[in-house]
């Protein structure tokens, strides 16, 4: 029994004209996802917006550069340290899963500032894999800037359609009875994956374990490295 019939959310927003027109006055529609071929135009628009925001005093002239630098200083190693700690300390893992934002902050890392973070644990039965089909939402405070492939139209469209094929391209062949859960991010939440701890790592220290935790394994497209891969 739905009590929402006929109550579909109406923001009150309406386009100014029924016919959309582009900057040159040409009418157009929105044919769905298209390959990005106009980065030049987008870059020009971004620059123009930046100039306007600075001119109107909304942001300072160096705010954007500083933010980019701060993000660039975040490396996947932050996430890897969390994973290694979760692997060796079950009680830490439990609180990380239950209260991610608080636990990440207490462990000395900066949680996502503008979105909630959800931590998911891969097991021998379930493999989580993260995508953002609509844009490129990513736990950048733990993993650094997202790789280009994560932002690509190809990954974003294939991830929800053929995740096993993508994992296979990243070198992970999953058994059929492992359940794949592709997690499609939105603007309010970021997902962070604890990969499965590789066999043969009993007794390893957190630092040693962290070396096995790759960025891609925390996106869920691949497994953590095996001891052999590191020693090779």
């Amino acid at each position: 029994m739905s009590n929402h019939e006929g109550e579909f959310y109406d923001t009150g927003w309406r386009p100014k004209n029924d016919v959309h027109r582009d900057e040159d006055g040409r009418p157009h529609d929105h044919p769905g996802l298209q390959e990005d071929t106009s980065l030049g135009v987008r870059a020009a628009r971004a620059l123009a917006m930046h100039e306007l925001l600075v001119e109107k005093g909304v942001i300072g002239p160096s705010d954007v550069d500083e933010d980019i630098a701060a993000r660039g200083n975040v490396v996947p190693g932050n996430g890897a340290a969390l994973v290694a700690k979760a692997w060796v300390a079950p009680e830490f893992k439990a609180t990380l899963l239950a209260h991610p934002k608080q636990t990440i902050a207490e462990a000395g890392f900066v949680p996502e500032h503008n979105a909630d973070i959800i931590v998911l644990e891969n097991t021998s039965d379930v493999q989580y894999m993260v995508v953002c089909t609509l844009c490129s939402c990513y736990p950048g405070r733990l993993l650094g800037p997202p790789p280009d492939w994560y932002k690509s139209l190809e990954y974003r469209s294939r991830a929800v359609r053929e995740p096993r094929k993508i994992m296979s391209e990243f070198g992970l062949e999953l058994a059929e009875d492992v359940e794949v859960r592709v997690v499609d991010s939105n603007s309010e939440l970021r997902f962070f994956v604890i990969p499965l701890r590789p066999p043969g790592t009993e007794g390893w220290s957190e630092d040693e374990l962290a070396n096995l935790v790759t960025r891609d394994s925390m996106i869920g497209v691949s497994a953590a490295l095996t001891p052999d891969a590191v020693n090779a």
Binding site: V160, E162, P163, R164, K165, E176, D177, E179, V180, R181, V182, V183, D184, N186
Partner: peptide, 9 residues
């Protein structure tokens, strides 16, 4: 590929 695979959103 598998009957139990899922998307969460």
């Amino acid at each position: 590929a598998s009957a139990t695979d899922k998307v969460w959103i």
